[in-house]
Design a protein around this nucleic acid. Structure first.
Lengths: 146, 146
DNA sequence: AAAATACTTTACGTTTACGTAAACTTTATC
DNA sequence: GATAAAGTTTACGTAAACGTAAAGTATTTT
C-alpha cells in the first residue's frame, strides 16, 4: 500500500536523488517499465519499488545486468512453472552465499579500521604529550626575546 | 610474519585469481609498488596485503580510486603529523557509516530473499500436490489405450 | 499569446577497469 | 644453442553507467 499510484520521472528522480537520465537509462536497459501518456512516462509504484531495489543493488556492488537478471527471473517465477521455481531457489542460494562473503568482508574491514583508529589515537596522544612537555619547558626556562 | 618475502607477478595473480594484466594495472594506478630486478617486478608481502585489500574493496563496491585514496592516506598518516591523523580519523568515521549502510542493505536483502524463498516453496508445494492428485486420478480410472 | 517549465528522443563523449594483440627481452629447460 | 616459458612495454579495444548537448514537443503559468 503505497502513498501514491503513479509518479513522474522527476518525482522519482528527486525522491531517490538520481538524475532523470539515469531513470531513462534503467528503462532503456529493461529494468523499469513505465507506461506512457502520449510521450510522457508514467511510473507505477512497482517501478518505484524496483528503482529502490536497483539503487540498493548498486550500493551492494551489483551491476545493472545482475539486478535485471533477478527482476526477470522473479517475473518468470511468478508464472509458476516448476523449472523456473527451482532455478529461482538456486539463484537465491547463490546470492545468499554472496551476501555471506560480503558480511565477512565488512567484518574484516571493521576490525582493521578498529586497529587503524587505535593507532591514530595513540599517535595523537603522543603528539599531545610532546606538546605539553614543550609548553612546560617554555615556562620553566622562558625564551629569549630579541 | 608472512610465509615468503617476495612474489612474482604470476604467483600473486594465481593466488588471488586475477590476471597479470590486472596486477600491472593496479601498479600503473599507483596501488602497488613492486621493486624491480632488471625489468622484472618483485612484489613484497606489503604489496600482497594490498592486493588482498584491493580485491576485498572491489567486492565491497569500492572503486580503485577510493582504495588508492585510503592507501595514500594511511601512508601519510604513518608520517605522523597531527592534521593527517585527524583527517584519517575523519575518513575512518565516514567509511564506518558507509559500512553501516551496507549492513542495512544486506539485512534488507536477506529479509526479502527469505520471503521470496518462502513463496517459491509454497508454489512448489502446490505443484507437487496437483501432481499427486493427477496420479491418483490416473490409478483410479486408468487411461484408455488405443 | 508569450515565456517558462517539464518532458522527449537522438547521439556523441567520458570514466573505470580491465581484455587483447603485437613485438620484444630475459630466464629456465632440454 | 634452440626453444619454450615467463616477463616486459605499447597501444588499441570494450562494456558499463551514465553525462551532456541539441533540438524538438507538451503543459503550465503569467
Amino acid at each position: 500500500m503505497d502513498i501514491k499510484k503513479t509518479y513522474s520521472i522527476s518525482e522519482l528522480a528527486k525522491e531517490f536523488d538520481v538524475t532523470t537520465r539515469s531513470v531513462r537509462f534503467y528503462e532503456d536497459q529493461g529494468l523499469l517499465h513505465p507506461t506512457r501518456r502520449g510521450q510522457t512516462r508514467i511510473f507505477s509504484s512497482k517501478d518505484r519499488v524496483r528503482l529502490k531495489l536497483i539503487l540498493r543493488g548498486k550500493r551492494m556492488g551489483f551491476s545493472l545486468a545482475e539486478t535485471k537478471e533477478l527482476f526477470d527471473l522473479w517475473d518468470e517465477t511468478l508464472s509458476g512453472n516448476e523449472k523456473q521455481l527451482l532455478l529461482m531457489l538456486d539463484t537465491l542460494a547463490r546470492k545468499r552465499a554472496q551476501l555471506e562473503q560480503q558480511k565477512n568482508d565488512i567484518a574484516q574491514a571493521e576490525m582493521e579500521m578498529d586497529t587503524a583508529e587505535a593507532r591514530c589515537r595513540e599517535a595523537l596522544a603522543e603528539l599531545q604529550k610532546k606538546k605539553r612537555q614543550q609548553k612546560k619547558a617554555n615556562t620553566e626556562e622562558p625564551v629569549e626575546q630579541k
